[in-house]
């Protein structure tokens, strides 16, 4: 994967580790601060300083990694499962099922992702779960589209046709032959969509519609730190923002190496 690739993989691994071990390695409670400790610079006590409520920024970044990673994880898992199922079913049945499915996907494509999420949040109230579920629905067509076109090609190859004639069930053929062939695509797509989901979920948290304060979340931290940043205390916003940028860039680079954006169903 090259040196840059190793750095990217290493960084992502570090972030995941930080998120997993947050309860053990975070020196402070991420939600509790003390007024006397506001806006501390970096020190031995507070590695990255404190925010406007006197909370330890390093601890908040570690805990924030959890919600910042679980949200996109929910999105890509749901998207992969449903997108693949939809695509393979419609490829297998073809005909009217396939065209109906395509219509449904077109309809979902008609909504900008964030708009769909906000509509859902308007109905069900703001939370990370609502945001992630809504975003999953918005992402399904991307995944379904790529998988459908690849699976369609596979299906028309002789080897998938012959056993069909010998009376082996469609489900078996689909899971035995089509699924393994689209699996790499699913992985690459998930890698790249993970980054997009992370940015969009962080945006929703930034708007106050995702993760709710006082919980720690990178998107929320960027927005929390906005006032401090303008007052000359950039640490919280900038560090949380950098965490997002680097994670997304690393994932994007890995995804690009694995097979590119096309696999994520993104035209661009």
């Amino acid at each position: 994967m090259g040196p840059l690739g190793s750095i990217a993989v290493g960084f992502v691994a570090l972030v995941v580790l930080g998120a997993l071990l947050a309860p053990i390695i975070a020196p402070y409670d991420p939600t509790i601060g003390s007024v006397t400790q506001r806006y501390q610079g970096p020190s031995m006590a507070h590695l990255l300083g404190t925010d406007q409520a006197g909370r330890d920024i390093f601890s908040r970044l570690l805990w924030g990694a959890r919600s910042s990673l679980t949200g996109p994880l929910i999105v890509v898992v749901i998207t992969a499962v449903f997108g693949t199922t939809l695509a393979l079913t419609s490829v297998w049945w073809g005909g009217i099922v396939d065209s109906f499915m395509s219509r449904v996907l077109d309809l979902l494509f008609a909504f900008p992702n964030l708009l769909l999420a906000m509509l859902a949040i308007a109905v069900f109230g703001p939370s990370l779960t609502t945001a992630a579920l809504a975003l999953s629905i918005a992402y399904i067509p991307y995944t379904a589209r790529v998988i459908r076109s690849t699976a369609m090609r596979e299906r028309n190859l002789p080897y998938t046709r012959s056993p069909q004639l010998q009376g082996i069930s469609g489900v078996t053929i689909t899971t035995r032959h089509l699924l393994p062939n689209v699996a790499p695509l699913i992985v690459t797509g998930a890698t790249i969509n993970f980054g997009f989901a992370m940015i969009e979920l962080a945006a929703l948290s930034f708007l106050g519609l995702g993760v709710q304060p006082p919980q720690a979340d990178w998107g929320l931290m960027v927005s929390n730190g906005q006032q401090s940043l303008l007052k000359g205390y950039p640490a919280e916003s900038v560090l949380a923002g950098l965490c997002i940028v680097l994670t997304v860039a690393a994932l994007g680079y890995i995804g690009e190496r694995l097979g590119g954006r096309a696999a994520a169903g993104r035209k661009a």
């Binding site: 945006a203 930034f206 997304v248």
Partner: peptide, 28 residues
């Protein structure tokens, strides 16, 4: 490669703090 990973809201904050608050070239 880096630019596509910068969320719009983060870019907004950075631009605001540099060019509006810091340099005063643009309204906040």
């Amino acid at each position: 490669n880096l630019g596509f990973a910068v969320p719009t809201f983060f870019a907004a904050l950075l631009l605001m703090s540099i060019f509006s608050v810091g340099l005063g070239w643009f309204p906040v």
